[in-house]
Simulated scan of single mutants.
Amino acid sequence: MHYVNSKSILSAKNGMNLYRGCTHGCIYCDSRSDVYNMNHKFEDIEVKANSLELLKKALKSRRKKAMIGTGAMCDPYIPLEKDLRYLRQSLELIYKYGFGFTCITKSDLILRDLDLLKKINEKTKVVVQMTLTTADEDLCRILEPNVCTTKRRVEVLNILKEEGIPTVVWLCPILPYINDTEENITSILDMCIDADVKGILCFGMGLTLRDGNRQYFYKKLDEHFPGLKDKYIKKYGNSYSIPSPNNDRLMEIFYKKTNSNNILNGVEDIFEYLNDFPVKDNTQQSTLF
């Protein structure tokens, strides 16, 4: 961990990153890509030391209320957050100044802040976004080794449902020859249906690989799935997009199950829902990320 001072904390579209880097250890993480110019080891978390004062200043000066989002780059509920509490303090500011909140996470640490999430949701709006990739607990410990498994994440989704907090699931990435099976996709979708999620984001069955995350991913394939790296290289080369050979059938299952259970499944529709801030004044609009 190391500290830096930042010039700003909120993007033009109201996204924020309190931390840069992650210790969840997910083998496929796109945030490892060189394109993001992270000039430190990925597990050496960069903490924006002045983020709270910057956020307070930004929220006070924002004329229009909006949804404040985090987690698009790095999970905000990394273990460091348990002690640093930057996100919890951010939630206190978001509540105080009347903004909404949404985040993407894989961690059950979010339940620590359930009291604040409920308060914000009563006042404005909260949407918790949770990533699910595999229904197989043993496989989950390989793909996402340093964070709670799918079973616990689904428990979190159900707790949030009971507390009246809407949720969205990210069904990605789906790794060719690893978790791209009908059994896996059907199991995850059934979990989402039971948890009454508002929407499921799916960008197609597959993943993306760029310099930086490609090398890390292939290293992990060699460790856990001997021989599979060569199969990837032969089929996909250095392609950015790595679609599953089972994409068409799996997407058919995805649309059939989500449509029949009134779950949002269009990417634009879901982001519109995430962006939507419940204002009383129709002249106000909001954007996210």
Rank of each mutant, 00 (worst) to 15 (best):
K256P: 07
I253P: 06
D281H: 05
D136I: 04
S11N: 05
I165R: 12
K198V: 15
S6D: 04
T23K: 13
M67G: 08
M251W: 05
Y95L: 14
N158V: 02
G25M: 06
D281E: 13
I242R: 03
V4P: 00
K64Q: 13
G21Q: 02
K125P: 14
R63C: 03
I94F: 10
K280T: 12
R85A: 11
L116Q: 09
G69C: 10
D222C: 10
H24F: 14
K13Q: 12
N121D: 14
T150F: 07
D115A: 14
K7V: 00
K280Q: 10
S61W: 00
E183W: 02
V156M: 05
S11Y: 01
V267C: 04
V169R: 08
K13Y: 06
P176S: 05
C22M: 03
K7R: 08
C172Q: 07
C22D: 01
G21S: 03
N184A: 06
D276C: 12
E252V: 00
I120A: 12
R32L: 09
D44M: 00
N265R: 14
P245T: 02
K123H: 05
Y240M: 07
C26R: 12
R152V: 15
L18G: 08
K231P: 02
D222K: 13
L117Y: 12
L80K: 10
K256C: 11
K219C: 08
I27E: 00
I263Y: 14
T208M: 06
K48N: 03
R32H: 02
L132P: 09
V147M: 07
I270Y: 14
T133Y: 02
C103H: 12
P76E: 01
D75S: 11
R152S: 08
K229A: 13
F271G: 07
L52P: 01
L139H: 04
C140K: 10
T124L: 05
Q284T: 11
E53M: 05
V147K: 09
L264E: 14
H40Q: 07
L109Q: 15
S11F: 02
K96Y: 06
E53S: 09
M1D: 07
D44A: 05
Q284N: 07
D194A: 12
T102H: 15
G237N: 08
L274V: 10
I104S: 14
Y36D: 00
D281S: 06
S51R: 01
D138L: 09
D115T: 15
E155S: 09
D222T: 09
A135I: 02
Y255P: 01
K151W: 00
P76S: 04
D230S: 13
T150W: 10
M16E: 01
S31C: 06
V47Y: 08
C172F: 07
V267G: 03
N238F: 09
C202T: 05
G25W: 09
D211N: 14
G237W: 08
R152G: 10
G21M: 02
K256M: 10
I68R: 02
L111H: 08
T70P: 04
I193R: 09
K123N: 12
F225T: 07
C22A: 03
L228D: 11
M130D: 05
Q215S: 10
Y28Q: 01
E162V: 03
D269E: 15
P79T: 15
E252M: 08
